[in-house]
C-alpha cells in the first residue's frame, strides 16, 4: 500500500459514503437529518479515537465538552448578541482551555481511574449548568440560538457543512497518524518510558491532545446548538459521553474510521430498537461479542491487515507465484 493510499483511503470512504446516503435522502428526506446526527457523533468521537486509540488515554468527558461548547456559543449569541460566525471561536477555545488546565494532574492516572475522573467531570459540568440560574437557563436550558451562518436551516446544507468538517478532521487525523507526531502519541500508548526515551514530553503532548479533542467536541456542540436552536443540560452530557465511548470502542479505536463507523451503527441501530430500556442490553451484548472476537473493535489493525492482504495487488502476484496457493484460489472460484 503506497503512502498516498494510506493517507487518502479514509477521506475517500467518507466522501463516497456521504454522497451515497445523501442521494438516498432524495427518497427518504429524514436521512439528511440522520446524517446530521451521525456527523455530530462522529465529530465528537473522532478525537476520542485519537486520544484513546492512538494515545491510550480514555476520556468520558467528550459529551460534556460538547455541551460546554454549545452553551458557550448559545450564551454569547442569546445574551450578548454575538453572531454564530464569531461565537464559533470561543465555542472551541473554551472547552479546549478547560481540558488543558485539568489535563496535567488527571492524565497520569491509570485507565480506570481516568474514566471515572472524566465521568465525574461531566457531572460537575451538568450540575453547573443546572444551577447556573438564568445565565445557563437552569434545568430548562437555552432556546433561541440563531441558525448556522450561510447555510441556515436547510437540512441538506447543514449536513453537508457538518460533514465537510468531519472530512477535514478525518484528513488531518489520517495525516497525523502517519507523522512523527502520530508515532510519538502511539508510543505514549504503548509505553510512557519508551515515549520519553524518544524525546516526547509526555504530559505536555497528552494535555495538548486532550485539549484538541475537547475543542473539536466544542465545535460539534456549536453545530448542535445552532442547528436545533436549543440546548438543555440533558441534551449532551454524561450519557452522550458514554455513547461516544461505545462508538469508538465498537467501531475500532485504532482505526481512523472506527469512530465514524461506530457513530453510523449507533444511530441506525437506534431506529430499529424498541425502547431505551433494551438499548443497554442490546449495545452491551454487541460490545461484549465484538470485543471477544476482536478486542480492538470492528476496524481493528488485524482486520485491516486481512483486508489489505485481500486487496493488495502485490500480494496477489506473490500468491500466484506459489503454485499451491494459486491452485487453491483457482479452485475456490
Amino acid at each position: 500500500m503506497s503512502n498516498e493510499a494510506k493517507l487518502w483511503t479514509a477521506p475517500a470512504v467518507i466522501v463516497v459514503g456521504f454522497c451515497i446516503v445523501m442521494l438516498l435522502g432524495i427518497a427518504q428526506p429524514s436521512l439528511h437529518t440522520t446524517m446530521f446526527t451521525i456527523g455530530l457523533y462522529a465529530l465528537i468521537a473522532l478525537p476520542l479515537g485519537l486520544i484513546y486509540g492512538q494515545g491510550g488515554t480514555i476520556s468520558m468527558a467528550q459529551g460534556s465538552f460538547a455541551a460546554l461548547g454549545a452553551y458557550t456559543s448559545a450564551i454569547l449569541c442569546t445574551r450578548f448578541g454575538f453572531s454564530p460566525t464569531l461565537s464559533v471561536i470561543p465555542a472551541v477555545v473554551m472547552p479546549a482551555c478547560v481540558a488543558f488546565l485539568i489535563a496535567r494532574p488527571i492524565l497520569r492516572l491509570p485507565e480506570l481511574s481516568l474514566a471515572l475522573v472524566t465521568l465525574s467531570l461531566g457531572t460537575v459540568v451538568a450540575v453547573g449548568l443546572q444551577r447556573g440560574g438564568d445565565f445557563t437557563g437552569s434545568f430548562v436550558g437555552l432556546s433561541g440560538a440563531p441558525p448556522l451562518p450561510l447555510v441556515g436551516n436547510h437540512p441538506v446544507w447543514v449536513a453537508t457543512t457538518l460533514w465537510a468538517v468531519v472530512l477535514i478532521v478525518v484528513i488531518m487525523y489520517s495525516h497525523f497518524v502517519h507523522s512523527a507526531r502520530g508515532r510519538s502519541l502511539n508510543a505514549i500508548r504503548v509505553d510512557r518510558l519508551l515515549a520519553e526515551s524518544m524525546g516526547v514530553n509526555v504530559p505536555f503532548d497528552l494535555s495538548i491532545m486532550f485539549a484538541i479533542a475537547a475543542g473539536i467536541a466544542g465545535l460539534a456542540g456549536w453545530f448542535y446548538v445552532h442547528t436545533l436552536g436549543y440546548i438543555a443540560p440533558d441534551s449532551l452530557g454524561a450519557h452522550t459521553s458514554a455513547n461516544i465511548l461505545f462508538m469508538v470502542v465498537l467501531g475500532g479505536r485504532r482505526a481512523v474510521l472506527g469512530p465514524v463507523l461506530g457513530a453510523t451503527f449507533f444511530t441506525f441501530a437506534n431506529d430499529f430498537l424498541p425502547g431505551a430500556e433494551t438499548h443497554g442490553l442490546f449495545f452491551g451484548t454487541i460490545l461484549v461479542l465484538i470485543l471477544l472476537l476482536s478486542p480492538d473493535g470492528i476496524l481493528s489493525p488485524q482486520a485491516m491487515r486481512v483486508l489489505r492482504r485481500l486487496f493488495s495487488r502485490r500480494d496477489r502476484v506473490s500468491r500466484a507465484r506459489l503454485p499451491g496457493t494459486a491452485e487453491v484460489t483457482e479452485a475456490s472460484r
Partner: peptide, 11 residues
C-alpha cells in the same frame, strides 16, 4: 419513542 431524550426527540 423519544426515549425521554431531547437529542433523540429532535431527530
Amino acid at each position: 419513542d423519544t426515549k425521554t431524550n431531547p437529542t433523540e426527540a429532535a431527530r
